[in-house]
């Protein structure tokens, strides 16, 4: 069976030894101890396991690790440089857009990807864009608010959130 021995995660080359048909979710959590990546369902229904692969959101529970070799993977741990927050992380804190927080890392990465392709989304666009993400605590309206807040600030600064 083909093996994966190297991945580019959060800007760093990580060495490992994994079957290429294992899920990216398991490799990130269990082999690389990046436990900010969350398991929620294992079937792509909740998006708690979302990571960015070459900038696009990917459900890591459905992604075979063999398909992402050589691609740039970003998990919540690598979204912002150490000791700093990404504007979307800041906005989630400010809007109190979480309760238990289990969905939050995937939600934030989903939001970052959404804002990259649609810098000034309407509420309806946010709801559609993130409808694959489940927040069981029901903080959806606050998440929408957080994303709008991040978008507004980015527009003011003339940068992408």
């Amino acid at each position: 069976m083909a093996r994966i021995t190297e991945l580019e995660v959060n800007g760093t080359r990580r060495h490992l030894d994994a079957d290429s048909d294992r899920t990216l979710l398991s490799v990130l959590r269990d082999d690389l101890s990046l436990t900010g990546v969350k398991y929620g369902c294992g079937e792509g229904q909740c998006a708690a396991c979302t990571v960015l692969v070459d900038g696009a959101p990917a459900k890591s529970c459905l992604t075979k690790v063999g398909t992402v070799a050589g691609k740039r993977i970003v998990t919540i741990e690598g979204l912002a440089p150490a000791e700093t927050l990404h504007p979307v992380q800041e906005a989630f804190l400010e809007a109190d857009a979480m309760q238990c927080g289990w969905c939050t890392p995937g939600m934030i990465l989903g939001a970052v990807a959404l804002l990259a392709s649609s810098p000034n989304p309407t509420d309806a666009e946010i709801a559609t864009g993130l409808n694959g993400h489940i927040c069981r605590c029901g903080t959806y309206p606050r998440i929408v608010r957080a994303i709008r807040l991040a978008a507004k600030r980015a527009a003011k600064k003339g940068v992408h959130a």
């Binding site: 990046l34 436990t35 900010g36 919540i76 741990e77 992380q89 804190l93 927080g101 939050t104």
Partner: peptide, 10 residues
């Protein structure tokens, strides 16, 4: 909250 948005909370 900061540990949650950064994925640091175990």
């Amino acid at each position: 909250g900061r540990a949650i948005v950064t994925g640091a909370h175990a």
